[in-house]
């Protein structure tokens, strides 16, 4: 139970960091990009957030049921 909570917190921190990066990375590291980098970054980061969130939900609902 305790390790499940820790894993949940870690996942939440990763999700929030990735969410923040959806704003931060395009305005810093990818500020001057003119190719597909920006589109690829946003798509892959969203995919990563979604997969982590689904993993998190599995953990939360596993504890709740």
């Amino acid at each position: 139970m305790c390790s499940g909570k820790k894993a949940g917190r870690l996942l939440a921190a990763l999700e929030l960091a990735l969410l923040a990066s959806l704003f931060a990375v395009p305005y810093t590291l990818l500020a001057g990009s003119r190719g597909l980098e920006l589109l690829a970054y946003w798509t892959l980061a969203t995919l990563a957030v979604g997969l982590l969130a689904l993993l998190h939900l599995g953990l939360e609902s596993g504890e709740g049921e």
Binding site: L18, L38, T43, V49, G50, A53, H56, E60
Partner: peptide, 23 residues
């Protein structure tokens, strides 16, 4: 391309909310 970032920010944050507070 900024339109994609704006709309994907919605999707990403929504799926995070659905997985935590939403549940």
């Amino acid at each position: 391309a900024g339109a994609l970032g704006f709309e994907l920010a919605y999707l990403a944050s929504t799926v995070v909310l659905l997985s935590t507070a939403g549940y």
